[in-house]
């Protein structure tokens, strides 16, 4: 059997396999999983909560956060360098420092994925951001 024939023979099976994976993904999660969800869970949910609810007056909520929605351009900097000044979110003051990401573990593509996930889940912002957008905004961090 030639190589071309092997590929010809395997191609339909591969297609079926990919479709099955896709169906399994939807079946097991109820929806198509956002690429930023897993990174959010690992890096953010410990404090901000899986549903972005925050922790009392210790950690601000992300869900419907007016502060985050107003400062979308600063989010890449917060994720990379942390946040060390008091802020007001939905009328409540917060002054605990936020710990930045381990930049060895999270690259700009993942930061973009996480921001897109939060935009969709918590901030009701439709416009997706790219890793280039993250890269450009990281240059302006104070």
């Amino acid at each position: 059997m030639t190589r071309a024939k092997i590929i010809q023979y395997l191609a339909p099976f591969t297609m079926v396999f990919i479709v099955l994976l896709f169906i399994y993904n939807i079946w097991s999660h109820g929806t198509i999983v956002h690429p930023g969800q897993a990174s959010y869970k690992v890096n953010c949910a410990q404090c901000h909560g899986e549903d972005g609810e925050g922790i009392k007056s210790l950690v601000p909520p992300l869900k419907n956060s007016d502060y985050a929605a107003k400062n979308i351009d600063s989010i890449p900097c917060w994720l990379k360098f942390g946040l060390n000044h008091p802020i007001i979110v939905k009328g409540v003051g917060y002054d605990q420092p936020m710990y930045p990401f381990d930049t060895m573990r999270v690259d700009e593509v993942q930061v973009a994925n996480i921001i897109n996930y939060m935009n969709q889940e918590f901030f009701n912002i439709d416009k997706p951001v790219s890793s280039q957008w993250v890269h450009a905004h990281l240059k302006n961090c104070k």
């Binding site: 410990q46 404090c47 210790l58 605990q96 936020m98």
Partner: peptide, 8 residues
């Protein structure tokens, strides 16, 4: 002032 595991 613990920023890592304490809030959780």
């Amino acid at each position: 002032s613990c920023p890592s595991i304490c809030p959780k």
